[in-house]
């Protein structure tokens, strides 16, 4: 079912004609945050209520993109004179480059990447310009956890505009089993014309999206990831497509890229060069494929799948002893919170 829906969403196959199926498809697209992309590719055909629903989605996306463009300018402003040109990641890059993958894509936060050496100055400048850590992460344990084990600062929210910036200094956590060569990606990044902002080169955009979807393991937005990868891949030149396999090996991202290419083939029938048992990169494991399908379909085994993925995701991020410690702390905190909720008098 989901496979057919995904094809309809990207316009590989027609929309269902009976109202109930169409209604279910629209609800699926909305719940998985891909209604905007669907609205973009179908807008000229839609009539009646469908037109209204698509128009509604287009307005939301336009807002996201305006917000993003404005906030990019604010970040640039805050870093004025430092010579730091952050790399826009994910949606920010697609919107700035006006890629097909940006059309209709929802964006909630801005993700930027700076070299590790520039991290402290970036953080300080943003704080001076009104961004601040949220209460939930503004404590010693969370700050230390993010800084030591994660690949980004805790989210910074602007105190007046309430917008969020995630400042990354690596593609993946320091402790991740997948070792992506951050420097190679950053070195190949290109300046946006006339701006102190950069984006990855096209092949690396696809690689990074694959890493984001498949290496840090949580598969939280499977449909959204697939649709994004589909539009990124269709937007690549033939030369870029041919260079993909080699580049992903060079930068140390062959595992997530293999998974992404498997998924594109599986769900959209995209023929992708350079994958297979004999080629440079190996296909995704059966475990990963099964878990991803389960998550996407949200079938009855999904609870089990989620459990596998939760452990898997942290396994990928952290060495085992740290994982055990972190899970214990997390459990202890949940317990404390549960006790607080149960006993309203005590928490006052």
């Amino acid at each position: 079912m989901t496979k057919a829906w995904l094809k309809s969403i990207v316009r590989q196959s027609p929309l269902p004609s009976d109202p109930e199926s169409l209604s279910d498809l629209v609800a699926f697209a909305e719940a998985h945050h891909v209604l905007g992309q669907m609205a973009t590719v179908w807008q000229n055909e839609a009539t009646g209520k469908l037109k209204d629903v698509f128009e509604n989605a287009a307005i939301r996306t336009a807002f996201d993109h305006r917000m993003l463009a404005f906030e990019m300018g604010r970040i640039e402003r805050a870093l004025h004179g430092t010579g730091i040109a952050p790399v826009l990641l994910k949606g920010g890059a697609y919107v700035a480059l006006e890629l097909p993958a940006s059309e209709g894509r929802r964006v909630a936060d801005i993700d930027i990447l700076v070299a590790e050496d520039d991290l402290e100055q970036t953080e300080n400048r943003l704080k001076e310009a009104g961004w601040a850590f949220e209460e939930t992460t503004d404590n010693e344990y969370d700050q230390a956890y993010y800084r030591e084990f994660m690949h980004e600062l805790p989210p910074l929210r602007h105190i007046r505009r309430r917008t969020v910036v995630d400042v990354h200094h690596r593609i993946l956590p320091r402790t991740s089993r997948v070792l992506v060569k951050n420097d190679m990606l950053i070195d190949a990044a290109q300046h946006l014309k006339g701006r102190e902002l950069r984006t990855f080169q096209p092949v690396d955009l696809f690689i990074h999206s694959s890493v984001h979807s498949f290496a840090d393991g949580s598969f939280d937005t499977p449909a959204r990831s697939l649709v994004e990868l589909y539009f990124l891949f269709s937007g690549l030149s033939e030369a870029d497509k041919s260079a993909l396999a080699e580049r992903s090996v060079t930068v140390g991202a062959s595992m997530p890229v293999a998974t992404a290419l498997w998924a594109l083939n599986e769900f959209f029938g995209e023929k992708v060069p350079g994958v297979g048992a004999d080629s440079m990169i190996k296909p995704a494991s059966a475990l990963v494929r099964g878990a991803f399908r389960a998550k996407l379909e949200n079938i009855s085994g999904a609870y089990f799948a989620k459990l596998i993925l939760y452990v898997r995701s942290h396994y990928l991020r952290m060495p085992i002893p740290q994982l055990a410690l972190h899970l214990m702390r997390k459990a202890a905190r949940q317990l404390v919170n549960a006790v607080k909720r149960e006993d309203p008098l005590k928490s006052q």
């Binding site: 402003r77 004025h80 400048r125 001076e128 310009a129 009104g130």
Partner: peptide, 8 residues
């Protein structure tokens, strides 16, 4: 609070 660094 300013939006970023500036000088005269």
């Amino acid at each position: 609070m300013a939006a970023g660094p500036y000088s005269d």
